[in-house]
Design a protein around this nucleic acid. Structure first.
Lengths: 120, 120
DNA sequence: TCTCTATATGCCTTGAAGCGTATATAGCTG
DNA sequence: CAGCTATATACGCTTCAAGGCATATAGAGA
């Protein structure tokens, strides 16, 4: 679990993923798009590869890097219990139409009152 | 701004957020739960505070830290374009990653079960 | 005011991460 | 094989964050 967050802390690597989200690309293309040196790009790709965030497909000397989104699902999973905290404005309405949730109109995440969720 | 990703790269800080997800807590309680020294805890809290991930409420000498989930929405936003990559064809993996009670209408292998607000 | 409690800050050391330059590896071409 | 292309690794430098210890700040109470 440490891995994906750690790896994505680097803005350049997030940018690489953004580029690969569009389509697989060879190293040289990424290098140019990022404005890095080629070794620099390769090193970031190595980190991403070891974290399982990208995959390589070899074509002659060219290496096509492509996205492997599975580790991102890990982040998504960590994020999930929090998500309702900011989606509540929408969800609350949704649930309100269905049934009455716990706390009323107040929306401050603070507050001395426990709000240990009754989720599920 | 030190991006939320940067801040969350630290496992200890993610743990702090997990603890604060349950309820607001004073520093001493976090310190004990984390097994850190008090200054160490305070430093992590400072980073979290400066990133807007937590908020402090003063009560006498006690400082109650509480979650501020907004920056997490930033991560969520970054994640959004990727999410469909595993929600479409690989959401079995996601279900495997967190074997938590699925609240939604369940698992349509061909249908996005969560909110479908992917497009922006 | 002195003291105790709760938390924050400063200083220092250590280790890791990023970047660049130089070099190694692998495959193609003639 | 030589030489070229595309990418990877090694090495050194520098910056920076994390942890520990000591200490400063702030409020409460006698």
């Amino acid at each position: 679990m440490t891995a994906p967050f750690d790896v994505l802390a680097e803005p350049t690597r997030r940018r690489i993923l953004d580029l690969l989200l569009e389509r697989p690309r060879p190293v040289a293309e990424l290098t140019e798009a990022l404005g890095l040196t080629q070794p620099g790009t390769s090193k970031h790709l190595r980190v991403l590869r070891e974290a399982g965030l990208v995959r390589v497909r070899a074509e002659a000397q060219r290496r096509w890097y492509e996205l492997r989104p599975e580790p991102l699902a890990e982040i998504d999973a960590w994020l999930r219990p929090y998500r309702r905290l900011w989606e509540r404005s929408l969800d609350a309405l949704e649930r309100h139409l269905d049934s009455m949730p716990d706390d009323g109109p107040g929306d401050a995440p603070a507050g001395p009152s426990r709000r240990t969720g009754d989720d599920s």
